[in-house]
Computed example of a mutant assay.
Amino acid sequence: MSASAAKPTQAPQFDVSGRVAIVTGASSGLGRQFARVLHAAGARVIAVARREDRLAELAAECPGVVPHVLDVTDEDGCKSLTDRVVADHGSIDVLVNNAGLGSNDTALDEDLDNFRYVLEVNLVSVYNLARLAARPMVEAGRGSIINTASIFGLRSSYPLPNANYAASKAGVVNLTRDLAGQWGRHGVRVNAIAPGYFSSEMADPLFADERGLQRVLRGTPMRRIGEEHELDGALVFLASDASSFVTGHTLVVDGGWSTH
């Protein structure tokens, strides 16, 4: 092949080779895919989740991925995680705050402790880990924090009863904006991805019900749910220098669901 015919396999601004990335909620679903994608793109990935067996499977599939068992609501454990990553790898270049949960209790039936716990996982832990990762990023003068929000952080979850999840993800959207404002002058970018309907442990029961699936499809202009790989580009874009002047933004990937 001549030099003129040769094409680069990847635009250099999307390169994340050698960057140190922490991914939470990495034992399944979107988090597992995020860890795989960053690993395939050349990043040194620390995969964080509670389920040790799932992390071991991921590490076996992606040699070089470092598994780290942690409940993100453990404040001391989160501090130990970021300290260890800096000690072992010298930096934290990318943080993907992906761990999350929700439940479909109605507001009249939900136990208040459950509501608090969902916010603790989905919002408070995002704030805590972002603060912890931002310290070495500020010192280095660069870094990218990517929070997993949701279309339910931008719209009501109606007709699904999901107040805990919707409230927490709306908090993630505005937390992303505020932290971006605080840390932008230090070269630390904070953005979010708001997925629409994708297959996951949380969403699959809805898709298993034909009426629920049809309701999702009718509300999505592209008339399908998202495929696992369709968040890869958004992730690499926000993790890399391709988004070097993007901060405080929530990137919606939903097949058009939020257009109405």
Score class of each variant (00 low, 15 high):
residue 9 T to N: 06
residue 15 D to M: 03
residue 15 D to F: 03
residue 19 R to A: 06
residue 26 A to G: 10
residue 35 A to H: 02
residue 35 A to M: 02
residue 37 V to T: 15
residue 39 H to M: 05
residue 46 I to H: 06
residue 50 R to V: 11
residue 51 R to Q: 11
residue 55 L to E: 09
residue 60 A to F: 00
residue 67 P to Q: 11
residue 71 D to E: 15
residue 81 L to T: 10
residue 86 V to A: 05
residue 91 S to P: 01
residue 93 D to L: 08
residue 93 D to W: 07
residue 94 V to H: 08
residue 100 G to H: 08
residue 100 G to Q: 12
residue 106 T to Y: 01
residue 106 T to I: 01
residue 109 D to I: 01
residue 109 D to N: 14
residue 110 E to A: 12
residue 112 L to I: 13
residue 113 D to N: 06
residue 120 E to P: 00
residue 123 L to C: 04
residue 128 N to D: 03
residue 128 N to V: 13
residue 130 A to S: 15
residue 133 A to F: 01
residue 134 A to Q: 03
residue 135 R to W: 01
residue 137 M to H: 09
residue 137 M to A: 09
residue 142 R to A: 15
residue 142 R to P: 01
residue 143 G to V: 13
residue 145 I to W: 09
residue 145 I to R: 10
residue 146 I to A: 14
residue 157 S to V: 03
residue 162 N to A: 08
residue 163 A to Y: 01
residue 164 N to L: 00
residue 168 S to H: 01
residue 169 K to S: 02
residue 175 L to M: 11
residue 177 R to K: 14
residue 183 W to I: 04
residue 190 V to K: 02
residue 193 I to H: 04
residue 205 P to M: 12
residue 215 R to I: 04
residue 217 L to E: 05
residue 224 R to H: 13
residue 225 I to V: 15
residue 230 E to G: 07
residue 231 L to M: 13
residue 234 A to D: 00
residue 238 L to V: 02
residue 255 G to E: 13
residue 259 T to R: 12
